[in-house]
Design a protein around this nucleic acid. Structure first.
Length: 825
RNA sequence: GCCGAGGUGGCGAAAUUGGCAGACGCGAGAGACUUAAAAUCUCUUGGUGGCUAAUCCACUAUGCGGGUUCGACUCCCGCCCUCGGCACCA
């Protein structure tokens, strides 16, 4: 036996491997997907190693179980950091990407991650983004992509248009300058057309609750009613969306968003100057300023009134920028008595407050000068004519029926979700395959002309106008109209980072297809993804966008099924040893390379999995790593000590809890039982991604064997097999060198347990008095489940039990067969 | 504010149809081996206390306060705290 030298054996097997077992024909498929990384310049970090190892273990176990496993990896390669790097250094983004992906791949292989590398994809590869562009064209052809003037973020210092994700706390992500707003023509995708399905189909999938919740939250579907109010003295009606029409008798004013087209038509001569000034001022405010919480609300009166037909009273119409133009109808009816925001506005501008809901226990008077009463779900309506006395929720239904019946309103559903702004004014992204013709307008590029390749350029700086650097590439822009053949210009906007990642998991099924994004038969074979593992940062948008595209592709019969991911799990975060987020500035970064260098990949993998539950935030511990290192060394020595002769049952075998005479047969039976229990536990735990307790079980099994002087090889083979998904290098070495096997351990069958051997030969029954443990008795399983009287008398013979029962009267005996007996005195 | 997750030893954590709280690991302490150290191995380890010192006993302990139950980390009600997401969305 040599000592365990991970460096040597790991590089040895890295050279030898490259084999992924072929599943038998007709084997059941398993598609294991982990979010593909952005190949940054800094290489693989600990979070990558952590996440990827989690799934690697499951994928390896599934392969050993005979599943046909799809377990691919690729590169989410478009992105700002690479472009910024290009701006700084002048190095081609494509070149930098090639270098980075090469390094990432090498690091992943070094960790023993057994991906189907022959299926590697790269979103910045023209053969890939050709199909990203193709999907865009289909969306356009189905009316789901359109161009519109939109307010966008703008950095006055960098002179670039900022996407939402580039604005952090209202500031430019790159330079920290305060972001401004300006109008820009942008491509949008009509994701709102899929809002209902994106909510409802969540019932079909197995996601963590909070993931489903945040998807629903983001979409923000509410049911309510649109109420039309006549404008006094005009023929105009203005419409307000409300989810609480049960409070409408308390409506005392109306507020319009400054952008609303009816604002100026409804403004009186007298108020015109003030309103115009207000609109102008709110336009110059950033989104952040406008939506800042706790900020004083501002507004201005239009001079017009709307009529509340329920009360017959006039409600002044105001303009205020707290009303969001794109939400609901862009006009809000104010019920200041029962809404925090309306109340503040009414306080400031001295508008009437009209209470119409009171607490159920409602004797004490609510002081509306101090606060609005908003707990209306548990309250009762008053001051409201035919609604008086009804609980608010019932009143809501009644008033909606009434309004609809009168023709004053209609039921409506509203969504928080907005259409997806799909344009970016950057270089390093997929060109949007559209052509602008003076005569024919926006025309899609002919599908046979895809991909529209990104031209190589020298300057990656965005232009002064905020357009993409592509706007400077004159001969690339110049093209002909696909419809009329006349001179035309290419779209210079590129797609957002989300585009390529919205469908990459489809391409893995058929990565080299030149005819389609993937062969429909392959898609049918593999989809949906059985398990999608990713991070919390993609809980909302990435999941939503990719689900949207998938549903659309299903609608045009390009993919099977309604949902792309049957199950989703989200991993936690590894913190630095100081409990803070790992960061260069804190100096608490540990990289996978560091650990592999010192302890080998197997120790790193095992430690990462042993830290705790995968979904949790956990601090790094270098001591913990050493503990795992010691464990692997123990396993190494133990397996090399394999002995065929006998168990060498030592006096102290299996610790103190020995419940059987010290015979060889007895020891063997105990070890057999431990082995089968371990197989069961490890098999089930890996399936549930509870790798930490699976490892604990393997440790217990190891400890159980350490107590023996000699251990037959069969027990050690199982140990090594169970450990192989976790520590692929060391177990391969032991399999060949210590156990003398000829074929790879990663092509063996996963061990099965024998349920008969799991059975305990002796069972411990807990004896309680008034629910407190006072003793335990050991009996055969048959007895434990058998007669209560027999157990009772056995229990009473226990000295401690007898002592506690002495002089007491037994009122009741609770007997749980096989488990426990409880005397109630 | 709303939604979600969580709170258990000195530390990371186990334990769920309610049934021996703290598996496994780290750290700590003691011992064996050694000239010595490292490595390795063995034992102890939630807290407090006890005695007839036995691998025993009592009390206490899973954020706080109640409740249900023979029995609660687990279920119910009311709080407190931490983390994450969303947030002037009508």
């Amino acid at each position: 036996m040599t000592n365990y030298h991970p460096g040597e054996i790991e590089s040895k097997w890295l050279k030898k491997w490259r084999l992924i077992p072929k599943a038998a024909k007709g084997a059941k498929k398993f598609y294991a997907l982990v979010e593909f990384p952005y190949p940054s310049g800094s290489g693989l970090h600990m979070g990558h190693a952590f996440t990827m190892t989690i799934l690697d273990i499951l994928a390896r176990k599934k392969r050993l179980e005979g599943f046909n496993v799809l377990y691919p990896m690729g590169w989410d390669a478009f992105g700002l950091p690479t472009e910024n790097y290009a701006i700084k250094t002048g190095i081609q983004p494509a070149e930098a990407t090639a270098q980075n992906t090469k390094r990432f791949k090498k690091q992943m292989q070094r960790l023993g991650l057994a991906y189907n590398w022959e299926r590697e994809v790269n979103t910045s590869d023209p053969d890939y983004y050709r199909w990203t562009q193709w999907i865009f064209l289909q969306l356009f052809k189905h009316g789901l992509a359109y161009k519109k003037q939109m307010p966008v973020g703008w950095c006055p210092s960098c002179k670039v248009i900022l996407a939402n994700e580039e604005i952090v706390d209202g500031q430019c992500e790159r330079c920290g300058a305060q972001a401004k707003r300006r109008l820009q023509s942008q491509w949008l995708l009509r994701i709102t057309a899929y809002a209902d399905r994106l909510v409802d189909d969540l019932d079909e999938v197995d996601y963590p609750d909070y993931v489903k919740a945040s998807q629903k939250n983001w979409i923000g579907r509410t049911q309510g009613v649109v109420i039309d109010y006549p404008v006094v003295g005009k023929s105009t009606l203005i419409s307000c969306y409300s989810t609480r029409p049960d409070t409408n008798f308390g409506a005392t004013f109306v507020v319009m968003a400054p952008e609303h087209p009816l604002v100026l038509p409804l403004t009186s001569e007298k108020q015109r100057e003030a309103v115009k000034k207000y609109i102008k001022r709110s336009q110059s405010k950033s989104e952040l300023e406008r939506t800042e919480l706790g900020k004083q609300k501002t507004g201005v009166f239009t001079g017009s009134y709307a009529l509340n037909r329920l009360t017959g009273k006039k409600m002044p119409i105001w303009v205020a920028d707290f009303v969001v133009a794109t939400a609901g109808t862009g006009i809000v009816v104010g019920v200041p008595a029962h809404d925090e925001r309306d109340w503040q506005f009414a306080q400031k501008y001295d508008l009437k407050i009209m209470p119409v809901v009171k607490p159920l226990d409602g004797e004490k008077e609510w002081d509306f000068a101090k606060a609005p009463f908003t707990d209306i779900d548990h309250a009762v309506v008053f001051n409201s004519d035919f609604l008086d006395g009804l609980p608010a929720l019932q009143a809501k239904e009644k008033i909606i029926d009434y309004l609809v019946g009168k023709g004053w309103g209609r039921r409506a559903t509203n969504y928080h979700l907005r259409d997806w702004i799909f344009s970016r004014q950057h270089y390093w992204g997929e060109p949007i395959p559209m052509i602008s013709c003076k005569k024919c307008g926006w025309q899609p590029v002919d599908e046979k002309d895809l991909p529209v390749k990104l031209p190589k350029i020298k300057k990656y700086q965005p232009t002064d106008t905020g357009e993409s650097p592509l706007a400077n590439v004159k001969d690339w822009i110049k093209t002909t109209c696909p419809k009329c053949g006349g001179p035309a210009r290419r779209e210079t906007d590129t797609m957002p980072n989300w585009a390529g990642s919205s469908w990459y998991f489809l391409r893995y099924t058929d990565p080299h297809n030149g005819e389609a994004l993937a062969d429909p038969a392959r898609l049918r074979d593999w989809l949906p993804v059985d398990l999608y593992l990713g991070g919390a940062e993609h809980t909302t948008l990435h999941l939503l966008y990719s689900r949207f595209w998938y549903k659309f592709l299903n609608d045009i019969q390009a993919v099977p099924g309604q949902e792309p991911y049957a199950a989703r799990r989200q991993h936690g975060v590894i913190l630095g040893e100081d409990g803070e987020k790992m960061s260069k500035s804190r100096g608490n970064v540990v990289t996978p390379d560091d650990v592999v260098q010192k302890f080998g990949a197997d120790t790193l993998r095992l430690y990462l999995m042993f830290m705790g539950p995968y979904e949790q935030t956990m601090p790094w511990s270098s001591r913990g790593v050493e503990g795992i290192w010691r464990f692997l060394n123990r396993v190494w020595r133990l397996v090399y000590s394999a002995d065929e002769t006998d168990l060498g049952c030592a006096e102290h075998s299996l610790g103190r809890r020995l419940d059987e005479p010290l015979t060889l047969r007895g020891c063997e039976r105990q070890l057999d039982r431990l082995m089968h229990q371990t197989i069961k536990k490890v098999s089930e735990d890996i399936e549930a991604l509870k790798h930490n307790t699976a490892i604990a079980a393997i440790m217990e099994y190891t400890n159980g064997m350490m107590a023996h002087k000699k251990i037959p090889a069969k027990y050690l083979e199982i140990l090594v097999l169970l450990l192989s998904p976790f520590a692929p290098f060391m177990t391969e070495e032991l399999w060949h060198e210590a156990l003398g096997k000829k074929t790879s351990i990663h092509q063996q069958a996963w061990p099965k347990y024998d349920a008969n051997l799991l059975k305990q030969e002796q069972v411990t029954i807990v004896v309680q008095i008034n629910g407190k443990v006072r003793g335990q008795i050991i009996v055969r399983p048959a007895e434990a489940k058998g007669s209560q009287l027999q157990i009772e008398s056995l229990a009473k013979k226990q000295p401690n039990v007898a002592h506690h029962l002495a002089g007491k009267k037994i009122a009741k005996v609770v007997f749980v067969p096989g488990k426990l007996i409880n005397f109630v005195v």
